[in-house]
C-alpha cells in the first residue's frame, strides 16, 4: 500500500509540474462546449435541450486527451519496466494510473462544469447533477481509458486507436449521465441515473485495472 501511495503521489507531483496538460483538457472542454451555441444558434431553449448531451460528449472527449501519454511516457523512459518490477503488480500500477488520471483530468473538468453549463444555458438547478454526472462519467472513462491505453501501448498510431477503442464503450455513461442532467433540469430527481452511473463505475473499478494489468504484462 505504501508503494502504491508513493506511485500515486509521484503521478500527482508530475501533473503539478506539468500543469499545461490539465489546463489543455479543461480549455478543450470549455471550447467544445462553446462551439455548440455558434453552431446551433443562441436560442436559449434549443441550447438548454442539447446541453446535457453536449456537456457529456465534450467532457469525455477532453478526458481522452491525456490518455495516450498515460503509459507512453513511462514506457519510453524505462520507468514502466521498473514499475512492473516494483512488486506492486501490474493491476495495482494500472489502478494508480487510473485514479491519477481522474484526479488530474476528471476532477478539474467537474470544477469547470458550471462554466460550460452556463454557456449552454443549462438551468442552474441542474448544475449539481451535471457536476455529479460528469465526475462519475469521467471516472468511468478514466478506468476504461487506462485499459485502452495499456492495450494500445506500443501500437503504431496508438493515439488514434485509443479513442476508437474506448469511446464506444463509454456510450452507457453518456446515456445515463445525460439522462441525469435532463431529469434535474426538468425538476425531477437525477438519483436513479446517477446510481446507474455509479454502478458502471463500480463494475469497471475491479475489471479495468485487471485488464490493463494483463495488457501491460504481455507488452
Amino acid at each position: 500500500m505504501r508503494a502504491w501511495i508513493a506511485l500515486l503521489t509521484r503521478e500527482l507531483r508530475l501533473a503539478l509540474r506539468h500543469p499545461a496538460d490539465t489546463l489543455a483538457a479543461v480549455l478543450f472542454f470549455v471550447l467544445v462546449a462553446a462551439l455548440f451555441p455558434f453552431g446551433i444558434g443562441p436560442a436559449p431553449e434549443t441550447l438548454a435541450r442539447i446541453a446535457p448531451g453536449a456537456l457529456l460528449a465534450a467532457a469525455l472527449l477532453a478526458a481522452l486527451l491525456p490518455l495516450d501519454r498515460l503509459f507512453g511516457a513511462d514506457a519510453e523512459d524505462g520507468t514502466l519496466d521498473q514499475l512492473l518490477l516494483s512488486g506492486l503488480g501490474s493491476g495495482a500500477v494500472a489502478a494508480a494510473k487510473a485514479l491519477a488520471h481522474w484526479l488530474t483530468t476528471g476532477l478539474p473538468l467537474l470544477v469547470a462544469t458550471p462554466v460550460a453549463a452556463a454557456m449552454l444555458n443549462l438551468p442552474m438547478g441542474a448544475w449539481p447533477a451535471a457536476m455529479a454526472a460528469l465526475g462519475l462519467a469521467a471516472g468511468f472513462l478514466s478506468l476504461l481509458g487506462t485499459a485502452g491505453a495499456a492495450l494500445t501501448l506500443g501500437a503504431r498510431r496508438g493515439g488514434v486507436l485509443l479513442p476508437l477503442l474506448v469511446l464506444p464503450l463509454a456510450i452507457p455513461a453518456v446515456i445515463f449521465g445525460a439522462a441525469a442532467i435532463e431529469a434535474a433540469a426538468a425538476g425531477l430527481s437525477p438519483r436513479p441515473y446517477l446510481l446507474l452511473l455509479g454502478a458502471l463505475v463500480a463494475a469497471a473499478l475491479p475489471l479495468a485495472p485487471l485488464a490493463a494489468g494483463a495488457a501491460l504484462r504481455v507488452e
Binding site: R10, R13, L14, H18, E76, G78, T79
Partner: peptide
Amino acid sequence: SHQDALKPAL
C-alpha cells in the same frame, strides 16, 4: 536498462 527511468521534471 538502457533507459535511465528518470522523470525530467523531478
